[in-house]
Each structure stands twice: as structure tokens, then as C-alpha cells.
Design a protein around this nucleic acid. Structure first.
Lengths: 280, 280
DNA sequence: GAGTGGTCTAGACCACTGA
DNA sequence: CAGTGGTCTAGACCACTCG
């Protein structure tokens, strides 16, 4: 069990002093009001119970208590652990499921989301062929070397200019035709031991490798899209004419706590594929 | 008030026959099982109560019972109307709020979402300047004419080839520079009376005009993005060199019931702006 | 102060999963 | 069959808005 974080209802006294008060949270009111110089992890100070639970669960995920793909404790058990009602835990889990950090499966339990899932891959790979179904793709690693972070890359990743980074260059092909040229920058610190061989021999999504080998889980990304003209080098690698229009996709990926851990610049040949987006 | 739709709990008997059964839904079990030849609007037949409520609320929105921007009845009132608990209505409204069809405002009530809201505009206009804040934009209508639907347009909009459509062409400028060239196709049927003058004199988002004047509310859109080379005409209108790379954004917009009501093809000059996207 | 949505609880039954 | 999440209810109090 280890040390169980105690949830203190903040706000004006104990929550919901209804007829159920006898079975209400155990956190003693006295302790809550006096004995807390409080290191205060999250700022708001007045936040709903379920958001506090959500924060605690997120910490457990971040800390690796439950790893990607694993089953987390049942709602009932978590409710007992945190001394709140099952409904409150449920709301916290619902929020985390909305954020795609957890996946609920009726009758089985709640699992930590992983990039192994097909659904997750579609969220991050938006390229769709004009005709036919999205077939498999082939990867080819052109380059993988450690080098000092250029100023712009360092800024995006929150590093100091000159910090160690890992730079990967690869080409993705569909049906034998090169379609995507990716340049990827990773902080050297978090990805010690990543080599070209390691990348090449791994079957499956790169983000899956990151979570299983480096404990790095990408949960969100911001992208900036542009149309650009192919320079000589890119044109050669993508087998298009120099100057041909390419879709430039600059992606910054984040792990828990909005910490950026990957900068990626992709050049897409969109003559037979398009980038799918849904506005909701 | 008018005729109030009666919600029948489907499934095995009345829901939740707990100790609260005395105050349970009034819908008589007998009527529910016998007196319903049932026109059956939605298929599933075995769906949770709150989803049925959601469907009923969606119908009311679609039917115009509550117009964009208006306040809908309170949760308590809807619960009474549908003869279900407030919590069930809440869950239905939560789902509709997640779909961006409704907007909750604490202390005030729940409102029908509208394209007048700033937040909604950001969902549909993703162009961001490289530097500085997103300033205002100027519109210029180049063309607005009725014409028969080309085959491809007809297919996308679910029309017969040759059906009447309205075709609009416009340019959006930021800080005096043309950045977006839009070609828009609308079904003539739904947009009778829309003219170039009407468009020009209207201040504000086009989708706002659609909902206030034509009762057409766009709730969702699919986009296909590509990089293309500027043809002579587009290049002239966007003041770029012929052959310059442009971001092509093909958008199909839907109203209630996934009915497509607009096809739009935009060409974006992304030399000083980018298309923002968030992967969650 | 009245009315709204927001939070929290407690307990019931249902549907699904796997041993 | 036991255990899980999914649905539904009922009732309490809180926080916000506005007259």
C-alpha cells in the first residue's frame, strides 16, 4: 500500500454535510485547518475534490506507479484509498479518460493509455491516402546522431542552447513511395542510450518505444502547418522535383505537466495523400 | 409547453428500482410495452436514458425550439418535463456541451452555442500570424453567383449533379495583405435569398449570418489539407508568384444529423501565417 | 434572496468480462 | 459466479449571477 495520500476537502469545512455525514471523509477538520503549513503542489487552493483526485492520479501516472497498458485499481478501491465516494473517483477518472490518459473497458477495468493502441496512432498520424485504405508504411532511418541543440530547438524544448540533443532523420514510405521526411529532435538527457540500431530494429510506433524503453509518454502535441517549396535535399529524399510544394508540419509533443519532449519537423508529399483534420 | 415527448425507459423494465422507486419515472410500464407502434427516430432501441434525452434535446435544437444564443430550460424543468431525474438530464446536457452544441454558464443557465462566440471562431479559423497577436481581418467578396453543382461538389453535399448551388469566392486579408482565397459552395435550396450584397453588408462571421438568417447552424467540419502550387489566377489574387506553395484546405461542414451544408476550398498563403492544430 | 449550474454522496440495478 | 465499469436516482450543499 505504501503511503496513501490523504485528500483534504478544501473550501468551507467538510463537503456535503447531508444525512450521509456519518460516513463522510475521515480527514479531521482540525488537521485540515491548523496542522497544514502545506507544501501545496497545485496552486488553486480552492479546487473541487474530484480535481484533486485527478491531480493525484496524474502524479501516480507520471511517477510510474502504473505503467502504460497496465490496469489501475478499481473505482471502489481508489475511493477507499482516497476516502471519498466512488462517484467522485469516477468523475476524476472520466476527466482523465477525456484527456486520453486512461481508457475504460467495461467489465475489465481502467487502463493506462498507450501508443500501442490503434486509436491513439490515428490521433498522431493524420496522413490519409487519397484512394484506398491506409496501408502499412515502411520506415527508413537516414541519420541518428547526438549534437548540440540549435538555439531554436533549445528554446522549443526548454533547454539551454548547446545542450545535448539527439537528432533523427527518417523517411516514411507508403507502397514503396517516399511520402514523409521527418527531422526529430529529442533532449539527450531523457533519451540516453537511444541509437540508430535501437530505432531500426524496433517494430511499431516510435512513441511506443519511448514509453516502454525510456518511460516517456507523449500525451499531447501542438502542430504548425505550412506549405513550403522543396529544397534540393528534401526533394531528392522524397523523389519530387525541387521547388515542389510540400506540407510542412512542425510538431511539439508534450508529456505530463506540459513538458515538451520532442520537436519534429515533417515534410509531407501531399500529391497522393492528405492531412486529415476534424473541427468539432 | 406544447406536446411533451414522453421518455420511455427501454430495456428490462423501469430503471433503478431501488428504494427510490416510489418517486420513479411516471411513464407507465403497461403503456411502454403495449401502446407504442413507435415511429422510432433513432435506431439502437436499447440506449441509456440520458442518450435518449440527448436525442430529444438535439431534435429540439434542430427543430428550432431554442435558437442559437438562447437560454434553454433549467435542468430541473427539463427533468420534470421528461419525467427523469435531474442527474440524468445533467448527463445529457454534459454530452451536448462536450459536442459544443450547448454552453453552460454557472448561475445563469445553459445556452445554445452560437458562432457569435469568440471561442467558436477559433475552432473554425485556425490561421495564426507568425508574429504578433491574431489581428482583425478584412473580407472582400469577388464573386457570388448561382450555378449548377459540378459533379464533385454535388457528391460532397449530397445533391444531384446539376442541382442549384450558390458559389461564393472571397479573399481574406490581414494587415492589408491577402492571405486566404476561399471558394465556397452552398446548396441553393437552404440558402434562398443569399446575395453578394447581403454577404458584404454583414459584419461578423459568415456562419453567424447563416444561423441568424437561414437557420443553418454548422456544428462540425472535416478538413483535408494539402500543399499545392499557385495557379495564375490564385497567385494574382493572393499577390504571390505563380507556382508558389499554398496550403489547400478543403472543408466539408455539417449541421445537425451529419448533414453536409457547405463545401469550402481555401488557399492559404502561409509565408507569414500558419495553420494551428492541436493533437490531444 | 431566489434561481442556476457545480460538487459530492450513497445506494441501487444493469451490462459486460473472465474464471 | 464475482468483479468491473455504466446508468439512474435522490438529496444535500456550494458558488455564482442578478435583481
Amino acid at each position: 500500500m505504501a503511503t496513501v495520500p490523504r485528500v483534504k476537502p478544501v473550501g468551507s469545512g467538510a463537503p456535503a454535510l447531508g444525512p450521509a455525514a456519518a460516513a463522510a471523509p475521515v480527514a479531521p477538520a482540525a488537521a485540515a485547518t491548523s496542522a497544514t503549513p502545506a507544501p501545496r503542489e497545485v496552486a488553486p487552493a480552492f479546487s473541487p475534490l474530484y480535481q484533486q483526485i485527478k491531480a493525484l492520479l496524474t502524479s501516480s501516472l507520471q511517477g510510474g506507479e502504473w505503467r502504460p497498458g497496465e490496469l489501475i485499481p478499481s473505482e471502489t478501491e481508489l475511493a477507499a484509498r482516497f476516502k471519498v465516494s466512488q462517484g467522485t473517483v469516477r468523475k476524476a477518472i472520466d476527466a482523465l479518460a477525456d484527456d486520453n490518459l486512461l481508457v475504460r473497458r467495461q467489465g475489465k477495468g481502467t487502463f493506462v493509455a498507450t501508443h500501442a493502441e490503434q486509436a491513439v496512432r490515428f490521433r498522431f498520424l493524420r496522413l490519409v491516402p487519397d484512394v484506398g485504405p491506409a496501408g502499412g508504411m515502411a520506415r527508413r532511418f537516414i541519420d541518428c546522431r547526438r549534437q548540440r541543440a540549435p538555439a531554436e530547438v533549445a528554446r522549443a524544448l526548454g533547454l539551454r542552447a548547446g545542450d545535448a540533443t539527439l537528432q533523427v532523420r527518417r523517411v516514411l514510405s507508403f507502397e514503396g513511395r517516399p511520402v514523409v521526411l521527418d527531422d526529430i529532435w529529442l533532449p539527450g538527457q531523457a533519451f540516453k542510450g537511444l541509437t540508430a540500431e535501437r530505432l531500426s530494429e524496433y517494430k511499431g510506433p516510435m512513441y511506443r518505444l519511448f514509453e516502454s524503453e525510456f518511460g516517456v509518454r507523449m500525451i499531447r502535441a501542438d502542430e504548425k502547418l505550412r506549405a513550403v517549396a522543396a529544397d534540393a535535399e528534401s526533394a531528392a529524399l522524397l523523389e519530387v522535383a525541387p521547388g515542389a510544394p510540400l506540407l510542412s508540419v512542425e510538431r511539439l509533443s508534450f508529456t505530463y505537466g506540459d513538458r515538451p519532449l520532442e520537436l519534429r519537423r515533417g515534410l509531407y508529399d501531399t500529391s497522393a495523400h492528405f492531412y486529415r483534420n476534424e473541427l468539432n
